[in-house]
């Protein structure tokens, strides 16, 4: 249940942000979670729900966006969806690829009043 650690980190970043911005009231936070980040979005939502109590995010709307896993084939240059780390290139069947997206685990934006 490492999602609880992640939820705690999100709250820490938001708390630091609120302090830096003179106690700004956070009304919304946008989080991006890649398919290959190792995070289960449902678990993260559940962990956040428990963890935000009595924090600066208690009243904030939490938006979690999932980012598709993407790969670029090193043989033919094809860019394709790779949601599981091991999808071969659909164009040339090569397993030699670079992951180009889907590892994201970041706070994109914070909205304040």
């Amino acid at each position: 249940m490492h999602e609880l650690s992640i939820a705690t980190s999100i709250i820490e970043i938001a708390e630091e942000f609120a302090i830096k911005n003179k106690g700004a009231n956070i009304i919304k936070i946008e989080i991006e979670v890649g398919e290959l980040s190792g995070i289960v979005v449902d678990s993260l939502e559940f962990a956040l729900e428990l963890a935000i109590e009595k924090t600066v995010l208690e009243r904030a709307k939490i938006i979690i966006t999932t980012i598709k896993g993407m790969a670029r084939c090193k043989q033919c240059g094809n860019e394709y969806v790779n949601s599981d780390w091991y999808t071969a290139c659909p164009q040339c069947a090569s397993m030699d690829f670079d992951i180009t997206g889907g590892k994201e685990l970041q706070i994109k934006s914070i909205f304040i009043e």
Binding site: E12, K28, L105, K108, F111
Partner: peptide, 15 residues
């Protein structure tokens, strides 16, 4: 009102 957007783009695992 949707508030004022502050771009953060901070990796959650930064710490």
């Amino acid at each position: 009102s949707h508030g004022k957007e502050m771009k953060i783009e901070q990796n959650i695992l930064t710490k």
